[in-house]
Simulated assay, not measured.
Amino acid sequence: MEPRISLLTLGVRDLARSRAFYEALGFVASSSSNENVAFFRAGGVVLGLFGWDELAQDAGVPPAGDGFRGVTLAHNVREREDVAPTLAAAQAAGGRIVTPAHDVFWGGHNGYFADPDGHLWEVAWNPFFPLAADGSVQLPD
């Protein structure tokens, strides 16, 4: 297997609400989107939104489940000062701030928000992982 993530699909309870939330954050829906699914370019990855029950059915698992799911998505920012305004933008779009912006033990600055379906997003400034011009994280070798 070639190591890569091509698409992240989030199960959502109300596709129109979730699509509007991500569009309010600046994501632009692809023309491949329709009333049953939404796709957004997210750097080198695609973010997909699909009905919660339909996604569970597609994966062959029960749709029950809430609370912490053992997964977070991350949006890294270029400057420490960008964390709080990014969290505020998510809240203004209909998200919920879970953890306000704060300095963290590893030397960065972060906070978390939940989208309308409870999917957790970390907003982080990491001084050890600078961003390239295209927004991609630059990991050391």
Rank of each mutant, 00 (worst) to 15 (best):
W121A: 04
L8W: 02
T72H: 05
G60T: 03
V37K: 09
L120G: 06
R4P: 03
G94M: 07
N36K: 15
P116H: 05
S33C: 13
P127N: 04
V98Q: 05
S6H: 01
G51T: 00
S32W: 08
F105V: 02
G94C: 08
G60I: 00
V37A: 14
L47G: 13
L49S: 00
G11E: 02
Y22I: 04
A38H: 09
G95A: 03
A24K: 14
E122W: 06
W52C: 04
R13F: 06
F68D: 15
D66W: 10
P63R: 10
N76S: 13
W121Y: 03
G44I: 04
E79H: 06
V61E: 12
T72I: 11
D66L: 11
E122D: 15
L131Q: 07
A132N: 14
T86W: 10
G51Q: 03
A38W: 02
V28Q: 02
A38Q: 11
W52S: 08
A24C: 12
A93W: 01
F39I: 00
W52F: 08
V28K: 06
L10Q: 06
G44Q: 09
S33V: 08
L10R: 02
I5G: 02
A20G: 13
Y112R: 14
I97K: 13
F129H: 11
V98R: 01
N110T: 07
F40E: 09
D103W: 03
F68R: 10
H102D: 13
H75K: 00
R80D: 08
G65C: 09
A16L: 12
D115F: 04
P116Y: 02
S6N: 04
G48A: 11
A92K: 13
P116G: 05
N126Q: 04
V83D: 12
A124P: 01
W125P: 14
A38N: 10
R19C: 14
P130H: 05
A124M: 00
V104G: 09
G67V: 03
S31M: 04
N36C: 07
S32M: 08
L47P: 13
H102W: 02
H109F: 12
V12N: 13
F129D: 03
W125L: 12
V77E: 10
F105I: 02
